[in-house]
Design a protein around this nucleic acid. Structure first.
Lengths: 147, 147
DNA sequence: CGATACTTGATTAACTCACTCGGCATTGAG
DNA sequence: CTCAATGCCGAGTGAGTTAATCAAGTATCG
């Protein structure tokens, strides 16, 4: 149930790009320095996000990356799916990348207990991450804890 | 965000043991056949569950495994933690196995956006899995869907 | 042109996952 | 007591993934 470094770095990079959204472009090394990410690794992450249509880039001097969509329209769920694949703990409960499980003894039966439990988990995760926007992410503040 | 085969097999094995709880012991090969699990792999899973105090076993002829605790008192969350480790997507939001993140630029600051988001996810997962018992798991039936 | 910065593809070291194997210890049957 | 069945335990292994790293491009600005 773990988030990869790739997704973690990707989210932190997008956080920086959100802060400068509509103001400026950011270069790899700027993002890398601000968020302590190895620049060559960051590069392929930004590229993946670009191919997915979240970013645009300019080459050459004064080049850099910028968000192409509004941070209100990008959710953490979208980003993690691009970088890490489906959110579902097992692929037979994924809605965006469903795959029938081959070896499961319940695969042919009308009902699978594991699907029931993991389906709930998948929905809970997706409910949070598909409604958590980059805007919210970038402006998050400590909640007042009562405990 | 994936569940390992180890946990999947472990849960399916415990499902069988729940069905025979208080009635009989089950041997490796019986569980393995009923659930299509490689028997040598199943062995180390059962052993881990035994060390964690969920199972007892008898050696020799007529040996086998049985649940040592009531299936009402065992949750899917416990099992997955034993076999896969913490539920939290990143270790700095784990409640059962917290670890400070070393390289994160927010580690020293009062607040980290990623912790906020992933903390929510961790709580949602734990809320489900720590309240889902083996009894429920073993008796789960298809819900009537309205869509 | 030449410095800067993004693009692309290849490569890699370390690690994890999902098993697999061999040998030992314990138990019950004959 | 011996033998066979079964669980116990540690080590090993091949495939795949993760997290980078590197080298050789191509576009852009001054």
């Amino acid at each position: 149930m773990k988030l990869s470094k790739k997704s973690e770095y990707g989210l932190r990079a997008l956080l920086e790009l959100t802060l400068f959204y509509g103001k400026a472009t950011l270069q790899r090394h700027q993002i890398a320095e601000r968020q302590h990410i190895p620049v060559e690794f960051l590069e392929q992450i930004l590229l993946a996000l670009k191919r997915a249509g979240l970013l645009s880039s300019r080459r050459g001097m004064k080049g850099g990356y910028m968000l192409i969509k509004s941070p209100d329209e990008i959710t953490l769920g979208q980003v993690i799916r691009i970088l890490d694949g489906p959110l579902a703990p097992i692929s037979c409960v994924s809605k965006t990348a469903y795959q029938k499980c081959s070896d499961c003894p319940y695969a042919t039966k009308p009902y699978c207990p594991l699907q029931d439990a993991m389906g709930e988990v998948r929905n809970a995760i997706a409910d949070i991450l598909d409604h958590y926007t980059l805007s919210q992410f970038a402006t998050a503040r400590p909640a007042v804890r009562t405990s």
